[in-house]
Design a protein around this nucleic acid. Structure first.
Length: 213
DNA sequence: CTAGTGATTCCCT
DNA sequence: GGGAATCACTAGC
């Protein structure tokens, strides 16, 4: 039997839980980006949990700054940061509120508006690559720093929402070390993905950069 | 495999 | 205030 994906938005209470509960529960959910040209919808296939101030891998580890302020705010909001001089990555803030937890959206399958996503991802060689990787995902959805702080659970229409979709049964969820996290934070197996899904990004261990001479 | 982009933060002065 | 190091990465060879 094939269940019908749930098209209703996830309520704020969904995100107002410990981030390690929310992260695997986000797999199979649908992120919808409303653009003037129409919606782009993406089914989440890979995410990573960041446990706020307790987590050496988190942007919130050293406390609140201008950049990460949104993580210290209410759950259900979007935290967008700029990285590697070129790219944006998108997180959903999770509760409890003062804990600064967040889930990085790492990969997904475009299920609606593929032509709009392709137009933003001209270098993608096939549709499985449209959102394979966190910066590719943000690019495909047209999400940049101007989306930082967006409420994905607002009662009115917003440019970004997360719908119920179809949660993934536990036996299809895999987890392992997070991509590119160094040091103490590397031990936590807080990356979650859907088993055998072709849109999941390849794992790459953290590579320390050589100092310039 | 490597180059490369630039915001952000940290550690001084 | 300034300079250096960092960074949850991608594209292109």
């Amino acid at each position: 039997m094939i269940a019908t994906p749930d098209r209703t938005p996830l309520p704020r209470e969904f995100f107002d839980r410990p981030v390690l509960d929310v992260a695997p529960d986000l797999l199979g959910r649908i992120v919808v980006r409303s653009t003037p040209d129409g919606p782009i919808a993406l089914r989440l296939t890979e995410v990573e949990a960041y446990d706020g101030e307790n987590d050496p891998g988190s942007h919130a580890y050293r406390g609140r700054t201008a950049r990460n302020a949104v993580m210290f705010g209410p759950p259900g909001h979007v935290y967008v940061y700029f990285t590697y001089g070129m790219w944006f990555c998108m997180n959903l803030v999770c509760g409890p509120e003062d804990r600064a937890g967040g889930v990085l959206l790492r990969a997904g399958e475009i299920v609606e508006g593929a032509e709009l996503a392709r137009a933003r991802r001209l270098s993608a060689r096939n549709d499985k690559e449209l959102a394979k990787g966190p910066a590719r995902l943000a690019t495909a959805l047209g999400v940049d720093r101007s989306f930082d702080g967006t409420d994905a659970c607002a009662p009115h229409d917003t440019p970004l929402r997360v719908l119920g979709g179809q949660p993934v049964p536990a036996h299809q969820v895999r987890n392992g070390r997070r991509t590119g996290v160094a040091g103490e934070g590397a031990v936590h197996p807080w990356r979650y993905w859907i088993a055998d899904d072709p849109t999941v990004s390849p794992y790459r261990a953290h590579v320390p950069r050589r100092r310039r001479s």
